[in-house]
Amino acid sequence: MVGLVIVSHLNSIAEGVCQMSQKLSAKDLVIIPAGGKADGSFGTDNKKICQAIKDADNGHDGVIVITDVGSAIISAGLALTALPFELAHRVKIADAPILEGAIAAAAKASENADLEAVLLAAENAKSIPKSTP
């Protein structure tokens, strides 16, 4: 099953998104938070993200990384460069809203969908309307 990593500038946000996504997905889906800096302060940490990716990887299905804004995206990219090649080529950073993207990705991954399908589900979450006409 494709694993998920949630990256936010605040650990509490990353953990909350993981908790909500886990409630709406398969029990065995691995969703790892990577929020805040190593000391718990506001920011992002590419080493923390790198470790989260390793923890979310099952060795063959891959990992989707979903971030909030700004340096979270940069840090996720830097984390990819620190991974072994065989893992790095199984990791995708989604261009998706953090909460809606995580929920959509978790639902799709719970169906044992492949990496590209989970990525597409996360990225398609950008177009989900929050109100009805």
Results as ranks from 00 to 15, higher is better:
Gln19Cys: 10
Gly59Asp: 01
Leu80Thr: 02
Asp39Gly: 05
Ala109Lys: 04
Ala121Gln: 05
Ala38Trp: 05
Pro33Leu: 01
Pro129Trp: 09
Phe85Tyr: 15
Ala125Ser: 15
Ala122Ser: 15
Glu86Asp: 15
Ser25Ile: 04
Ile103Tyr: 10
His89Ser: 15
Ala94Lys: 07
Glu15Thr: 09
Leu10Tyr: 00
Lys37Gly: 03
Val7Phe: 11
Gly3Trp: 00
Ala106Leu: 05
Ser21Gln: 07
Cys18Thr: 04
Ile103Glu: 07
Ala52Met: 06
Glu86Pro: 11
Lys92Phe: 11
Gly77Ser: 14
Val17Trp: 02
His89Cys: 15
Gly16Ser: 10
Ser12Tyr: 02
Pro97Thr: 13
Ala76Gln: 10
Asp28Thr: 13
Thr81Asn: 12
Ala88Pro: 05
Asp61His: 11
Val30Asp: 08
Ala122Ile: 14
Val17Tyr: 02
Asp39Lys: 01
Lys48Glu: 04
Asp57Ser: 13
Ala34Ser: 12
Ala106Thr: 04
Ile93Met: 14
Val2Gly: 01
Gly35Lys: 00
Leu120Asp: 13
Ser12Thr: 12
Ser12Arg: 07
Gln22Gly: 10
Gly70Tyr: 04
Asn124Trp: 09
Val69Trp: 03
Asn46Trp: 01
Lys47Gly: 04
Asp28Leu: 09
Glu116Pro: 10
Pro97Trp: 06
His9Arg: 08
Leu78Glu: 06
Asn124Val: 09
Glu123Leu: 13
Val65Gly: 07
Ile49Arg: 01
Gly36Met: 00
Thr132Gln: 12
Asp95Pro: 11
Asp114Gly: 09
Asp45Phe: 05
Ile66Pro: 06
Ile74Ser: 13
Val17Ala: 08
Pro133Gln: 08
Ala106Pro: 03
Gly70Cys: 06
Gly40Tyr: 07
Lys92Tyr: 12
His9Asn: 06
Lys27Ala: 14
Leu4Ala: 05
Ser12Met: 10
Met20Trp: 10
His9Ala: 01
Glu116Asp: 15
Gly62Trp: 05
Val5Pro: 03
Gly62His: 06
Gln19Met: 11
Gly77Thr: 08
Gly35Thr: 00
Lys27His: 09
Ile32Asn: 02
Lys126Pro: 08
Gly16Val: 05
Glu116Ser: 15
Ala72Pro: 06
Asp28Val: 09
Ala109Glu: 01
Glu116Ala: 14
Val2Ser: 03
Asp45Lys: 00
Gly35Pro: 03
Lys92Met: 14
Glu15Gln: 13
Lys54Leu: 12
Lys54Met: 11
Ile64Glu: 03
Thr67Lys: 08
Asn124Gln: 15
Ala82Gln: 02
Asp95Arg: 12
Met1Arg: 05
Ala94Asn: 10
Val118Met: 07
Asp68His: 04
Val65Trp: 04
Ile66Val: 13
Cys18Ala: 10
Pro133Arg: 07
Leu99Glu: 09
Asn124His: 14
Lys126Ala: 12
Cys50Phe: 00
Ile128Lys: 14
Pro33Arg: 01
Asp45Leu: 04
Gly101Glu: 14
Val91Ala: 06
Asn112Gln: 10
Lys48His: 08
Leu87Ala: 11
Glu100Arg: 12
Leu87Ser: 08
Ala122Lys: 07
Glu86Trp: 11
